[in-house]
Amino acid sequence: MDAHNRLYLTKFTTTTGSLPLTLPNNISEITLSARNLQRRFGDHLVINDVSLELRRGEVLGLLGHNGAGKTTTMQMLTGCLLPNSGEIEICGFNLLLQPELAKANLGYLPETPPLYRELSVNEFLNFAARLRGIKPSSTAGVLAEAKRNCGLESVGKKIVGTLSKGYQQRVGIAQAIIHQPAVIVLDEPTVGLDPAQIREVRTLIRELGDTHSVILSTHLLSEVESVCDRVEIMQHGKLIYSDTSEQMRQHGNVSGFVVGLRNPPPLSSLEGIPGITHVEPLTATQFRVLHKPQDNPKSELLSMAERQGWQLEQLIPLQATLEDVYVRITSPKETGEALSKESTP
């Protein structure tokens, strides 16, 4: 049995001894569920009817513009802010009714890492572990593990305040995972890191995602592409799109390709090929060719190029990047359409 299941067991046996011990296995599926969250600041409705579900072994990316409500949502999921209405359950515990049991299964890295700058890294992580209910006898073990995971072995004795921003961010991640929580909430975890560190942190998140549930907010689309299993896009306090990151890339994909011809024919003869709807010259020898999604004129074009000596150089299918898709989904005129397409998790 791994570490987090052990944590469940101790929680169950010590605090709610009457519950059957089989429960930990049953609840290992959905670790976090939020239903119909609403949050106002004064008259301003910041979060409107947000529902989320997260399973063990899943990394969920929360995407959105600045001010879309990502941080507010995460603050509500971690108990730092109460929703005006709605329910949050972490590992089967209601966050509002049984906050202490629910939060024991939670690790949170806010936008600014919550650090005590005057303590050393070891002291701080030790405190963070004890705070989450790790016994003094086992803190040394979890401390070493968290430091190894976050690459902090060499700075254990340094004062947190003297570390560089990248290392401080790593300490922030370490405090969030030190107690092996079932749900890890990371608010823009790679901000302020250099490219090498970003790659390390992403690998770490990916590893964590295999055994824990991770929810991370970001506006870096490459992060979603490389790390997340699932994407939720947020705009104006609403979730407007939800899908796997692979599916999202397919969303609104255009059918077409870029073709390079060393000896190009006049534009009209390209447009004459059946199925091709639009040809746009990119350079003298490169053309962007759009076609109807149902009939692909690729083979026709290839054979014509061969017969007429156009000297084909390259043929690259157009693939929308996540960035294109994201912009398309969040742009105002598409919002209505995206809403109607929204798939329920």
Binding site: E100, K103, L106, Y108, P110, P114, Y116, R132
Partner: peptide, 14 residues
Amino acid sequence: RNQSFALLLSAPLS
């Protein structure tokens, strides 16, 4: 101000 209060708020503490 240092935004470290979130650590206590999100910890299993009353």
